[in-house]
Amino acid sequence: MNANVRQTYLGASVTTASPERLVVMLYQRLVLDLQRGRDAQAAGEREAAHTHLLHAQDIVMELRTSLRTDAWSGALALASLYDWMHTQLVLANTRCDVAMTEHVLALAEQLCDTWREAALQAAG
């Protein structure tokens, strides 16, 4: 598939997705960026790790800023978790710390699974 067709498809997927699906898509990309960042850190590829971890930080900040903290009782706790994840990613990036990246990755995978399940329930 050429790059233009892929971009068009991805663009259409994002613009037509439900809010729940968009959150899941963000989490899926967060997990991918963290996996790639961790792998690059482990291989000593600092520039690649930096790029992936910066993108992961951007996603966490997007999740944080789009979170409506007045919408439900657990929202403030989730906001605090996002803040913590962002701080950990900054440190993992600046220290090139694979263990810190893996810790955030494990948490992101759990959150991704939870949001995916919630989106399925909302759709069904």
Results as ranks from 00 to 15, higher is better:
residue 80 S to P: 09
residue 9 Y to L: 15
residue 31 V to R: 03
residue 56 A to Y: 07
residue 79 A to P: 05
residue 96 C to E: 14
residue 78 L to A: 02
residue 116 R to L: 06
residue 33 D to K: 05
residue 48 A to S: 10
residue 23 V to L: 14
residue 102 E to P: 07
residue 5 V to K: 14
residue 75 A to H: 03
residue 80 S to T: 13
residue 13 S to I: 07
residue 43 A to Y: 03
residue 9 Y to R: 09
residue 40 A to D: 08
residue 26 L to K: 04
residue 71 A to V: 05
residue 101 T to A: 03
residue 106 A to N: 15
residue 27 Y to C: 00
residue 81 L to K: 03
residue 94 T to I: 15
residue 27 Y to A: 02
residue 28 Q to V: 01
residue 74 G to K: 13
residue 110 Q to C: 01
residue 104 V to S: 00
residue 96 C to A: 09
residue 116 R to Q: 05
residue 9 Y to M: 14
residue 64 R to M: 02
residue 27 Y to N: 00
residue 8 T to Y: 08
residue 13 S to F: 07
residue 104 V to P: 05
residue 84 W to K: 11
residue 117 E to N: 04
residue 10 L to Y: 09
residue 103 H to L: 06
residue 45 E to Q: 13
residue 119 A to Q: 02
residue 120 L to F: 06
residue 102 E to W: 04
residue 105 L to A: 03
residue 121 Q to W: 01
residue 53 L to P: 05
residue 47 E to M: 14
residue 65 T to P: 06
residue 29 R to H: 12
residue 119 A to F: 03
residue 70 D to G: 09
residue 83 D to T: 15
residue 42 A to P: 04
residue 104 V to N: 08
residue 111 L to P: 09
residue 22 L to K: 05
residue 64 R to P: 01
residue 27 Y to F: 04
residue 99 A to R: 04
residue 123 A to T: 04
residue 110 Q to W: 00
residue 105 L to F: 02
residue 114 T to Y: 07
residue 16 T to I: 12
residue 101 T to N: 06
residue 71 A to L: 15
residue 18 S to N: 00
residue 103 H to A: 15
residue 64 R to D: 11
residue 41 Q to M: 07
residue 82 Y to K: 11
residue 109 E to H: 06
residue 6 R to D: 13
residue 78 L to G: 00
residue 76 L to R: 10
residue 66 S to F: 06
residue 38 R to S: 12
residue 42 A to N: 08
residue 41 Q to F: 08
residue 54 L to Q: 13
residue 124 G to F: 06
residue 60 V to N: 10
residue 45 E to M: 10
residue 50 H to P: 04
residue 31 V to I: 00
residue 88 Q to F: 05
residue 16 T to W: 08
residue 48 A to R: 11
residue 62 E to W: 07
residue 85 M to R: 07
residue 74 G to A: 03
residue 33 D to C: 15
residue 30 L to D: 13
residue 13 S to N: 06
residue 47 E to T: 11
residue 108 A to G: 08
residue 63 L to C: 03
residue 92 A to R: 10
residue 91 L to D: 13
residue 68 R to P: 11
residue 69 T to P: 11
residue 28 Q to I: 00
residue 84 W to Y: 10
residue 81 L to Q: 14
residue 87 T to A: 13
residue 12 A to R: 10
residue 110 Q to S: 13
residue 94 T to N: 05
residue 49 A to M: 02
residue 17 A to V: 05
residue 26 L to Y: 10
residue 79 A to G: 00
residue 8 T to S: 11
residue 108 A to T: 06
residue 11 G to F: 08
residue 32 L to V: 12
residue 21 R to Q: 12
residue 58 D to W: 05
residue 64 R to Q: 08
residue 74 G to R: 01
residue 117 E to Y: 09
residue 16 T to G: 10
residue 71 A to D: 10
residue 28 Q to W: 11
residue 101 T to P: 10
residue 56 A to D: 10
residue 16 T to V: 02
residue 116 R to S: 12
residue 36 R to P: 05
residue 60 V to L: 01
residue 111 L to M: 05
residue 44 G to P: 03
residue 88 Q to D: 03
residue 47 E to Q: 14
residue 57 Q to N: 04
residue 68 R to G: 10
residue 32 L to T: 15
residue 45 E to T: 01
residue 7 Q to M: 15
residue 87 T to K: 09
residue 20 E to S: 02
residue 87 T to D: 14
residue 85 M to F: 07
residue 30 L to G: 01
residue 100 M to V: 13
residue 51 T to D: 14
residue 107 L to F: 09
residue 65 T to Y: 15
